[in-house]
Simulated scan of single mutants.
Amino acid sequence: MTNILLTGSSRGIGAAIVTALDLPDVTLAKQATRGGNGTIAADFADPAAPQALWDTAVAQLGTIDVLVNNAGVFEASPLDGDEWVAQWERTMRVNLTASAELCRLAVLHWQARGRPGRIVNVASRAAYRGDSPAHWHYAASKAGMVAMTKTIARGYAGAGILAFAVCPGFTMTGMAEDYLASRGGDKLLADIPLGRVAAPEEVATTVKFLALEAPPSMTGAVVDVNGASYVR
């Protein structure tokens, strides 16, 4: 049995990951900001939330074998806005710091038990390509996730602790639909050689592979799911 802690499970990519991991040999602890529907409530804007979530998940599962960091916010912050710094700090707290705290707790958990483990961080194409002028903070937070993933992979592979990142481009969630419509959907789609945005299920399939099946030599890999809209 593989015990997995998934954050951001309530909609979009997270909901698709829940479906992909609905397997007989997987037990899933799911985080959502408000809780409900069998999820653990944890608002990552609260600095105490990652530790509380981890403790609750360990109490539920006994041990955690895989951590999937998917929770995040994508909120516009115009450069001349009065709340720019506050928005920067909120995005970093939710997208990067909370993920970092959970990664730290996972590594310590596995080290204390002498066990292997896996981390899958859902980052973004924006980590490499950047984002709109109103989303400096989002791009920076996702670049931080990628750098953190690589650092964990290099630091702990010898103990069997593996780390991977997934970098989706636009994904057809409610959030992406609203953004596409507000930015002129046809123009944005023209920038994707595949001709469409990714489906959440495509990202979820990638997360499932990395969480359960990817060979150890892939540790440190960053997998793009963006329809060739950014290649590197």
Results as ranks from 00 to 15, higher is better:
D65F: 03
G72A: 14
N70E: 06
K150W: 05
R232V: 09
A147T: 12
T27L: 06
A214F: 09
M148G: 05
A15Y: 12
T97D: 01
R125Q: 14
L108E: 15
I64G: 00
R90N: 14
G227P: 02
A140N: 11
M1F: 15
D65W: 07
A139R: 01
T2K: 13
L6A: 04
A204I: 04
G36M: 04
A49G: 05
M175V: 08
V225P: 05
R90S: 02
R196A: 14
P50G: 07
K208C: 06
T171L: 12
L162H: 01
V207C: 02
G36P: 04
A153G: 10
T2H: 09
L162W: 09
Y128H: 12
A221W: 02
F44E: 04
T206S: 06
N3G: 02
K142D: 06
Y138A: 01
H135A: 04
A123P: 01
R183Q: 15
K150I: 04
L189T: 14
N226S: 01
E177V: 11
E177A: 15
L162P: 00
D224S: 11
G38A: 13
S9C: 15
S77V: 08
A163C: 12
G227E: 00
A181H: 14
S124G: 06
A157D: 02
Q60L: 14
P24V: 12
T2F: 07
K150A: 09
A123C: 14
L28D: 05
G38F: 12
L210M: 11
A176Y: 04
G169A: 12
A123Y: 01
T173Q: 07
T151K: 04
G160P: 07
V122W: 01
G130M: 03
S10K: 09
I40F: 12
Y156E: 07
N3E: 06
A221R: 02
V58I: 14
E89H: 13
S77P: 00
A140I: 03
I119Y: 02
G117Y: 05
S141F: 10
V222F: 03
F44C: 04
Y138S: 11
V225R: 00
R34A: 15
C103H: 01
Y230S: 08
R125K: 13
A98I: 03
E213A: 10
R154W: 06
E177G: 06
F209K: 02
L79D: 03
I13N: 05
D80M: 12
A100S: 10
T206A: 10
R90H: 13
L23I: 13
A59M: 11
D191H: 07
Q31Y: 04
G114Y: 08
T205P: 00
Q51D: 15
A52I: 10
A16G: 14
G220S: 03
A127D: 07
A157V: 11
L23R: 15
G36K: 05
D224A: 09
F164T: 04
A143G: 13
L194N: 08
A204Q: 02
G62S: 07
